[in-house]
């Protein structure tokens, strides 16, 4: 069949056209998507990256619920000026436990991929309560209500169990202790801290909002303070074997 005939044939038969489109999209999909699951450099595992602690995870849920990702990206691109402003470029592995990923697509506010440890907890409370008290021209909305909303810790165990079921390396112990770990992470005087830190290295243990109850503010700040701090970039080498890209 001449090529123009084939064209004619497809164009005038909707079923053939449908099958043709399906095949084309399928090939494109397989070639583009499937390799991401097996090529070493796209499934790079990096020392230090761990699943979120229950409190951090609750904070991420609030981050998603409030739509922070609409104004904030969490993706430092490998460009000189971004590295100069925000710090080391983001690694794919750093968002391997983000579901959904928080790369974002718009920067109304600054990128948050390395915000952990940049500010104090007090500052975050102050800023989230009323951004314009800190930055007079800020267009970020106030989230003062998070101070008064008690964190619902009841479902966190189920959340961890669900993540475990889809392959995140939570242990049965972590799932069983999920709710208790929320209380441990906001209590620097707790006896369980060592065990907690063994489960979640580098987690910050503090009463983040300085209020007696555990609020959604605690959870959100615990999350903000861990973002971008899990990998030790003094140790990370971009060029060894499969890290190179």
């Amino acid at each position: 069949m001449k090529i123009s005939k084939l064209h004619d044939f497809m164009e005038t038969r909707s079923f053939a056209l449908m099958v043709g489109i399906l095949l084309t999209v399928m090939v494109g999909g397989i070639v583009q998507i499937a390799p991401l699951f097996y090529i070493d450099s796209t499934i790079e595992e990096v020392e230090g990256v761990r699943p979120y602690s229950p409190l951090e995870l609750a904070g991420q849920d609030i981050y998603v619920r409030e739509g922070c990702y609409l104004c904030h990206s969490q993706m430092i691109r490998p460009l000189r000026d971004e590295i100069e402003r925000y710090g080391h470029y983001s690694l794919a592995a750093e968002s391997m436990y983000d579901r959904p990923f928080q790369w974002g697509s718009k920067r109304t506010g600054p990128d948050l991929a390395r915000v952990g440890g940049k500010y104090t907890d007090d500052w975050h409370v102050f800023h989230l309560t009323n951004p314009r008290a800190v930055v007079p021209d800020s267009v970020m909305p106030p989230y003062a209500f998070l101070n008064d909303k008690k964190l619902n810790a009841k479902l966190i165990g189920a959340h961890l169990a669900a993540k475990k079921a889809i392959g995140e390396p939570y242990t049965d112990e972590m799932v069983a202790l999920a709710e208790a770990d929320i209380y441990t992470q906001v209590d620097p005087d707790s006896d369980d801290i060592d065990a907690f830190l063994a489960r979640y290295p580098k987690a910050q243990v503090r009463n983040f909002d300085a209020q007696p109850e555990i609020t959604e503010m605690d959870a959100l700040i615990a999350y903000l303070q861990i973002i971008g701090t899990m990998v030790d970039f003094d140790e990370y080498q971009a060029n060894i074997n499969d890290n190179a890209r």
């Binding site: 070639v31 499937a34 390799p35 097996y38 090529i39 070493d40 450099s41 490998p78 460009l79 000189r80 590295i83 100069e84 470029y89 971009a238 060029n239 190179a244 890209r245």
Partner: peptide, 25 residues
Amino acid sequence: AIPLLNGYTKGVLDFSDRDRVAVAV
């Protein structure tokens, strides 16, 4: 460009974002 069974074609220029930015920094 093209994904292979284990890795991908590196291309004649052997271009890498990471290398380029390391040089720029």
